[in-house]
């Protein structure tokens, strides 16, 4: 007998004579305490994310690349990895060309194996989109794909994330329902609620454990 059938048989005999419990999931318990007026969502998100060292700026959807350049200049960074095939990646690249920025614009356009050393050690910053955010917990929702691979939001010490103000949901349940997650998830769906941190030594909070040391969110207001 295989381990699989042994385990399943033991479990089935443990359940002999019992009936499955009904699904009485009460969604009000996870939605009602976490509802906000539309104008309060950004405030809630900001408060929670800023409390865990996230830097947040509200910018207009046509001139945000300027803000990106300013953020990089403040920190005196040498390069930024972006996703050239996305709309925001193109907008950024256009701005870069016009402004003649000295910050090198890198593209994550080949498999990680081809530039692992560089990606792990030499990339200063990354910029990715999000598919929305959750006000209740102060979380960004990232949906990595071919154009914006998973490691983009993890390896560089600075991660800049773009968030459309109109895509902030009240709570995780509402987000799941609106985007119909159960119909199909990507290889790796992520909720990101701040820069990487740890409290493993004496419960003292330290940022930049293994992932980004800094997270900057640009909330794009419709122009």
């Amino acid at each position: 007998m295989s381990a699989r059938s042994n385990i399943l048989n033991k479990l089935r005999s443990g359940l002999a004579g019992s009936i499955p419990r009904p699904d009485d999931f009460d969604e009000r318990l996870v939605t009602e305490p976490w509802q906000y007026a539309p104008e309060d969502r950004i405030t809630r998100l900001r408060n929670l994310m800023e409390a865990v060292h996230t830097e947040i700026h509200q910018v207009s959807s046509d001139n945000w690349p300027e803000k990106v350049a300013a953020i990089l200049a403040e920190r005196d960074l040498a390069n930024l990895v972006h996703a050239p095939a996305t709309a925001h990646g193109q907008q950024l690249a256009e701005y870069w060309q016009q402004s003649g920025s000295s910050v090198q614009l890198l593209a994550y356009d080949r498999p990680v194996e081809e530039w692992k050393e560089e990606l792990f050690w030499e990339v200063d910053a990354s910029i990715t989109g999000t598919v929305g955010a959750i006000a209740a917990t102060g979380s960004l929702v990232l949906w990595p794909d071919r154009h914006e691979p998973r490691l983009m939001s993890l390896l560089p010490p600075l991660h800049i994330a773009l968030l459309k103000a109109s895509e902030i949901e009240d709570n995780l349940y509402a987000m799941m329902q609106r985007q119909n997650w159960s119909a199909g998830l990507p290889t790796n769906l992520l909720l990101v609620s701040g820069p990487s941190k740890t409290a493993d030594i004496e419960q003292v909070l330290a940022y930049g454990a293994h992932g980004p040391k800094e997270l900057v969110v640009l909330i794009l207001e419709d122009a």
Binding site: V112, A136, G138, R146, L185, T187, L189, L190, P195
Partner: peptide, 24 residues
């Protein structure tokens, strides 16, 4: 566990790297 509304990362994995994906 920690008194946090959520952890910094919630990592939901539904498969290995797809043919056209660049990492994972």
């Amino acid at each position: 566990a920690l008194g946090q509304p959520i952890t910094t990362y919630v990592n939901m994995i539904s498969g290995p790297r797809k043919a056209d994906e660049l990492d994972g």
